[in-house]
């Protein structure tokens, strides 16, 4: 009797042997639930649409969108639009990376130069770049060049700013080590500055993904000449919401694929960084 009142007893909890199926679920819970989330979103949309809860006029059901997509991909006009949008995106983004990275490294390496450019870079980074569309139209008209330049602007400032920042914040301690070994500038550059800045560059590119996509869409909306954005806008004008949402879906997929691709590169570059929670693993 006195035993139980005098002590707080901490009992063991025996490990239960779980059913293998349940164990499999526990091991893959995240992936399973995540897939279930997406599937149930689509299912709810479809059911709601069929039951008349969601207006088919505005939001076609997933099945209708798929049907519209199946029809769309047979049209030569569609592939023409894809080709135009893809070229604008590819050329604009590539030019942005190829110019922003070396320029950013050069500017960042010279402290005075980087601080001189600071207000301008910050200004352009804070400016919604699509606001430049009417100006660029004044330069080169409504065609392919304008849209490519807008894509370029979308990517360029997103990448150059973190690049400058990355070079400027290269760890002083590492620089001291290199200098104490009398490393030549060239070596310091290739062995310290470049690897130290890479993560910054990649995170800039990740930000740029969303911006170049938004840039190409808005530029095409604005110009109304050609491209997937025009297909979306034209579908809206003719009240074909299934076809329009198919167009939006293409950009969704593109956004996910590009973001994931950059994420893979990012994780690869960070592989030498120790995970913070390692000691808690046990």
């Amino acid at each position: 009797m006195t035993e139980t009142t005098a002590f707080r007893v901490i009992h063991a909890r025996a490990r239960r042997r779980r059913h293998p199926l349940r164990r499999w679920y526990r091991g893959n819970e995240r992936a399973i639930l995540s897939a279930a989330g997406i599937v149930s979103f689509i299912a709810a949309w479809q059911i709601g649409s069929d039951a008349g809860l969601i207006s088919k006029f505005f939001f076609s059901s997933p099945v209708e969108i798929a049907a519209a997509g199946a029809l769309e991909v047979q049209k030569a006009r569609f592939w023409e639009d894809v080709k135009i949008s893809a070229s604008e995106l590819a050329i604009g983004s590539l030019a942005a990376v190829l110019l922003a990275v070396p320029l950013g490294i050069a500017i960042g390496w010279y402290r005075g130069v980087s601080l001189t450019f600071d207000p301008w870079l910050n200004f352009f980074n804070a400016l919604p770049r699509v606001a430049l569309i009417p100006l660029v139209v004044l330069w080169v008209g409504l065609g392919f060049e304008m849209k490519t330049i807008i894509v370029f602007f979308g990517g360029f400032f997103s990448i150059i700013l973190p690049t400058v920042e990355g070079v400027r914040t290269v760890d002083r301690q590492f620089l001291d080590v290199a200098r104490s070994f009398r490393a030549p500038e060239r070596l310091i550059f290739t062995s310290l500055v470049i690897p130290g800045t890479l993560p910054f560059i990649v995170s800039g590119i990740r930000l740029a993904v969303g911006r170049v996509l938004a840039g190409v869409i808005i530029a095409e909306f604005y110009a109304q000449t050609a491209g997937l954005g025009v297909m979306i806008a034209r579908s809206e004008a003719s009240l074909q919401s299934d076809r329009m949402l198919f167009g939006v879906l293409i950009f969704t997929v593109l956004g996910i694929v590009l973001t994931e691709a950059v994420g893979i590169v990012e994780r690869y570059l960070q592989r030498w960084r120790p995970s913070l929670d390692l000691e808690e693993a046990a």
Partner: peptide
């Protein structure tokens, strides 16, 4: 450390018993 966490109640032991004076 694991033993300490069991005493503290952060981890459940798989067998045995611990009594703390109330």
């Amino acid at each position: 450390s694991t033993f300490l966490k069991i005493v503290n109640g952060l981890l459940p032991a798989t067998a045995g018993e611990i009594k703390l004076h109330r």
